[in-house]
């Protein structure tokens, strides 16, 4: 990757009106393993792929419970996610203390967004290098929110972030219409199928393309269902169920949205390095 003079600080706008430091932080999300969030009428489900950093270590925790009605799944710098989760937890707790009820998901995320925004505007801070999928349930039903390092947040029908998540997103888009009326079992299986395409190619081969071997974490929250990370046993049941439900679209080559090799338009004057994401407007 090549440098230019406008990417040193978050406080510097490029001549094209972009914030390179923020865009680079968005790249950090793609370094984390993939995670998927999706929902049916009454439940939100998070599915995360985890990979131990070495043969001898356990894998990083990908799904962090926040409150009974809410949890997050992360991709990117785990340490940054801990700061965010501590904030979310204390917000939920103090809301519960004041009002005796659960923090509406949309409002919590709005406030988180405003907290994160300050890090994109000050010389002495850097953006959080982590993307979140928030799964929550409140009086307005189940929610999936995507939060990016640029402090933008999106209310989603379903979504996926992390490395090679494009094939998961393609899967989700293709099946989007069916999610609403899915049963819980079905929606979890959809989550597993979606994330299966995000497996590294070599892994897929070594696992013999069997979904029942995946190292994943599943969490669910919804009507009369406090946020729960499924036990290994339950996860195994769903993995088997998913692989029985038909082969996930595993072998199809994923569309590589993260390729940064496209040739940049050659314009005169200073040039921005080409990164995959544009600063969102």
């Amino acid at each position: 990757m090549f440098r230019n003079q406008y990417d040193s600080d978050v406080t510097v706008w490029s001549p094209q009106g972009r914030l390179h430091q923020v865009e680079y932080a968005m790249e950090a999300v793609k370094l984390g393993t993939a995670t998927v969030g999706l929902k049916n009428r009454d439940f939100a489900v998070l599915v995360a792929l985890s990979k131990p950093s070495s043969e001898l270590s356990a894998s990083q925790r990908k799904i962090i419970p926040i409150d009974d009605h809410l949890g997050i799944s992360i991709a990117g710098i785990t340490a940054d996610a801990r700061v965010i989760s501590r904030y979310l937890r204390s917000e939920c707790l103090s809301y519960k203390h004041s009002y005796g009820s659960t923090y509406p998901v949309s409002r919590l995320i709005t406030n988180l967004g405003n907290k994160m925004q300050t890090t994109t505007q000050r010389y002495d801070r850097r953006p959080y290098g982590v993307g979140l999928l928030v799964g929550g349930y409140d009086e307005k039903g189940p929610h999936i929110y995507q939060v990016t390092p640029s402090a933008t947040f999106y209310n989603c029908k379903a979504n996926s972030i992390g490395s090679r998540s494009q094939s998961a997103r393609t899967y989700l888009e293709r099946n989007l219409d069916t999610f609403l009326n899915c049963s819980n079992d079905e929606i979890i299986c959809h989550g597993i199928s979606a994330i299966h395409g995000s497996l590294p190619t070599d892994e897929m081969q070594s696992r013999n393309e069997s979904a029942s071997q995946l190292n994943i974490t599943i969490a669910i929250v919804g009507k009369n269902q406090p946020f729960k990370i499924l036990s290994e046993k339950e996860t195994q049941i769903y993995l088997t169920m998913a692989s029985e439900k038909g082969a996930p679209p595993a072998n199809q080559p994923y569309d590589d949205d993260e390729s940064t090799s496209q040739a940049g338009p050659s314009t005169s004057g200073p040039r921005d390095p080409i990164v995959a994401v544009a600063t969102e407007e």
Binding site: Y99, S101, R107, K140
Partner: peptide, 9 residues
């Protein structure tokens, strides 16, 4: 967002 305060809260 259509969410309003409830008497209990």
């Amino acid at each position: 967002d259509g969410i309003t305060m409830k008497p209990k809260a």
